[in-house]
Design a protein around this nucleic acid. Sequence first.
DNA 1: TAGATTGTTAATCGATTAACAATC
DNA 2: TAGATTGTTAATCGATTAACAATC
Lengths: 251, 251
Amino acid sequence: MSQQRNGQAAGVSDGAVFPDLPEATVARLPEYLRALHNLAETGFDTVSSEGLAAAAGVNSAKLRKDLSHLGSYGTRGVGYDVALLIAQIEHVLGLTQRRAVALVGVGNLGHALAGYAGFSSRGFRIAALFDADPGRIGERINGLVVHDIARLPEVVAAEAISIAVIATPAHAAQSVADRLVAAGVTSILNFAPCVLSVPDGVDVRKVDLAIELQILSFHEHRKSALTTLPSPTGDGSMKIRPTLDGEALAT
Amino acid sequence: MSQQRNGQAAGVSDGAVFPDLPEATVARLPEYLRALHNLAETGFDTVSSEGLAAAAGVNSAKLRKDLSHLGSYGTRGVGYDVALLIAQIEHVLGLTQRRAVALVGVGNLGHALAGYAGFSSRGFRIAALFDADPGRIGERINGLVVHDIARLPEVVAAEAISIAVIATPAHAAQSVADRLVAAGVTSILNFAPCVLSVPDGVDVRKVDLAIELQILSFHEHRKSALTTLPSPTGDGSMKIRPTLDGEALAT
DNA sequence: TAGATTGTTAATCGATTAACAATC
DNA sequence: TAGATTGTTAATCGATTAACAATC
């Protein structure tokens, strides 16, 4: 059982059909795509690696390295053709068709995700909603009716769904994942704060909102610990910020 | 201007007060913490690296390496004391006090985040809501009133807020970030699909829901491209899954 | 003591980055 | 041609992993 795909992105073993892409590159391509769409709307036909890198928040060496994995789509001395690069990245990401997505769990967070416009505008169609709560089944959200989760196999097949979003409480998520996999889903975006176990060949990505804040909390904690220490640059200045932590500080 | 903290986690330059933690370790500590709370609830007093690693979805070598950065809190031949390790991780993450968080943008997604129970149960208190839409100001969500964003400085100071969540449309996010920073916020969790530019010393983490699906889409695309290719293991078997992509396949 | 399990070492691997030759 | 910018190289850095000595 694998819990998360890692290392090089899957491709055929001889490398003839598709080049393998480093996972770090795959994770950045969507950001480049978003930046390119912005540039296109602003009227740019062409962009340099420096310009695109700035728009995507990375350095230009990394951007060029990433794009070099896709093949050569830039022109030396000129830059990249915006429309061409958009098409190429959309092709690599498999976004040339709109993908149908199932969403399981229409509570607080799931309800918001069902109405999230960003899914629709960036390559996806929420094709079906599911919940286990009898009180919610039949409810309409954004033009979609909430199905009983028992109907997963039927609806997943009918809508040709291969990607699902789990927005249930943590205690229900593993069971939902099992049922999704049994119904034929092969990619899962998990918002429940728990680890999912899935068979090889199924990809899981996890988004844990509290974990994001906890990582920020760590850095806040570090920053406040620096409050009264002498500057490491040796210029004699002190960083004085009020510490909210009330923690013992080295002096 | 920095857009994202990277590399080793910040600490004092001489390393005397806090050990520096690798960023990859920092990002996993919250997952260990969640797993430990589960174990504690299930009645475990002690857990081995093997057991905790399984619960957190990592391998045990990585877990031990991560924990070794905190100091030595395990007992050879026995394992880790669950309560002690919880306390240690919460201390390192700065979760010994409940941190006040501001949320800006109470539209579709922001409204759900304002009611997200996981923030409250895992170390945070949504202390204030803000929006720019006059139609939403004064609205009550989960017992909190939505303030005019013009009141940011005042409320951030009064509530001692250092962390904020941006859940506005992308076109408003940079301006909101600027105002948050001006008001004294030093950590931002950004749900808007855009790059934020902030001064050094301010940490930004970004969650882009569509990007998560696009990364899964890439892997779906790869999986369907494998459909009719001979097995790389050379056992003569074929991976036959119906391809939904309708894409030209090498044969 | 014997068995179990940690904490650390060292090898490996993947990602980042600066520099620059190639070339438009 | 001269200037600009890509694509690639090679060095560096950080993260992962297996193995095992230390030790409970």
